Amino acid sequence: MTILVTAASGQLGRLVVDALLERGAQPAEIVATARDTDTIAELSARGIRTAELDYDRPETIAAALDGVDRVLLISGSAPGARLQGHRNVIEAAKAAGVARLVYTSAPKATTAEGFPLAADHKATEEAIAAAGVPAVILRNNWYTENYVPDVTRAAETGVIASSAGDGRVASATRADFAEGAAAVLLRDDLVGETIELSGDTAWGYDELAAAAAEVIGRPVTYRRLSTEEHVAALEAVGVDAGTAAFVAGLDDAIRRGVLGDASPTLAELIGRPTTPLVDGLRAALARAETAA
C-alpha cells in the first residue's frame, strides 16, 4: 500500500508523515509531496519518495499519483482561492483510481451558517461526493497553535482580547490531528464517513487566559469585545478592512458555538487523550521561540 501526503512541507503535512512512520508505515510506502521538493529534501534522505504536486498544476498531480493507493488531501491555505485546486486533486484521484481519499475539512462544514471558512470546505466535500471517489472526510476543529500570537501578545499586555464572547473551542494540537489522519490512512474501514474531530475538552476564553498566564508566568485577563470593537482594534494596528472582518467573523462563529462541540473520537483514533490546552500552548510557544 502506498500513501501520498499532499502539502508535506507544511506544518500539518510534516507531522502526518512522522505519524505514519511512528505507526509502522515503511518509508518506501509513503509519497511526500510539495510544490517545491527542495522544501522536503530531508524526507527524501529518510527513504521517503518525494514528488512535486501543485494543486493549481494538474499535470503535477497526475504524475505524483502514479502507483498510489491512498491520498491525504490537506486543504489549501488560502480561503476563497483554494476550491479549484482541491477539485484538481479530486479529479486526478478519480482518474488514477485511488482506493481512498482523505480530506481535511472544517467543523460543521455543511451546516454552520456564517462561518467564514465553511464555503470552500462544503464545496470540496460536495465535489468529492460528486466524483464518487472512496473517501473519508476529517473535519478538524481549531489548532491550539492558532493561539500562539494571542499568548505572545499577552506576555506584553496581560490581555487576550476577542469578540468570541462566551463561546467555547474544542481545540487540539496539530500533532493530535496529524496522528488522527495517519490512523485513518492506515485503517481499512471508515470509507464513506464524515468524522468531526476535536480535542477532548472545550474551553472558553477565560480558560485560555488562565492557560496563557500559566505558560508565560504573569496574570492574563480576557477582554470581551463587540464585533465592531474587534474590527476597529484590528484596523487600528494596520489590518486591512477585509481581513479584519474575516477575523471578527471567525470569533462570531465561535460565539455562536461552531467550534464548541468536544468529542472523544480523535482520542479514540489515536489511542490516547488529546493534548491539554496549557500543554499544547507551552509546546507551541517553545517551538516559536526556538524558530525565532
Rank of each mutant, 00 (worst) to 15 (best):
Y55L: 02
L190D: 06
T275N: 06
S198H: 04
E52R: 15
A202D: 04
L83Y: 11
Y147W: 15
V17A: 12
E235V: 12
L281D: 07
E113P: 02
I137K: 06
A292W: 07
I137L: 07
M1H: 09
A253M: 05
D200I: 01
V215M: 09
G180F: 01
A96P: 06
A232I: 00
I270C: 00
L250M: 14
T6L: 03
A123C: 04
L281W: 10
T194D: 03
I40D: 04
A181Y: 04
V68A: 07
A106V: 15
S171D: 09
T2G: 01
P27G: 02
V258P: 11
A213S: 13
E52T: 15
V231A: 02
A154I: 08
L259F: 15
I40W: 02
K94H: 14
R218M: 10
D56K: 13
G167E: 10
G24K: 07
D166L: 02
S105H: 08
F246V: 11
I195M: 13
T37F: 07
R153P: 02
V191F: 02
A175P: 00
A181S: 13
D66K: 15
L277C: 05
A51S: 14
S77K: 11
T6P: 06
H86V: 04
L72V: 09
L225Q: 14
D38L: 11
S9K: 11
L72F: 14
I270K: 00
A178E: 12
D38P: 03
V5D: 03
P134G: 08
Q26K: 14
A288D: 13
A170N: 03
L185I: 02
E179K: 05
N88Y: 01
E207I: 02
T227L: 10
G24P: 07
G10L: 12
T152Y: 02
E214C: 00
L225A: 04
A130S: 13
S77A: 14
N140C: 11
L185E: 01
A93I: 05
S171Q: 08
T37H: 06
R168N: 00
K108T: 13
E145L: 04
L234I: 05
D56E: 13
D188G: 15
A32E: 08
G10I: 12
A45P: 03
I254K: 09
L43E: 12
G47N: 09
V16M: 07
R49Q: 15
I90Y: 03
S226F: 08
I270L: 00
D188M: 01
I30Y: 09
A182E: 01
E113A: 15
A172M: 04
G47C: 12
E42D: 15
L281E: 09
A127P: 05
V191N: 13
R87N: 12
R14S: 14
V71E: 08
E235A: 09
G238L: 10
P116D: 05
A202H: 01
T33H: 12
A95V: 01
V98W: 02
P107V: 10
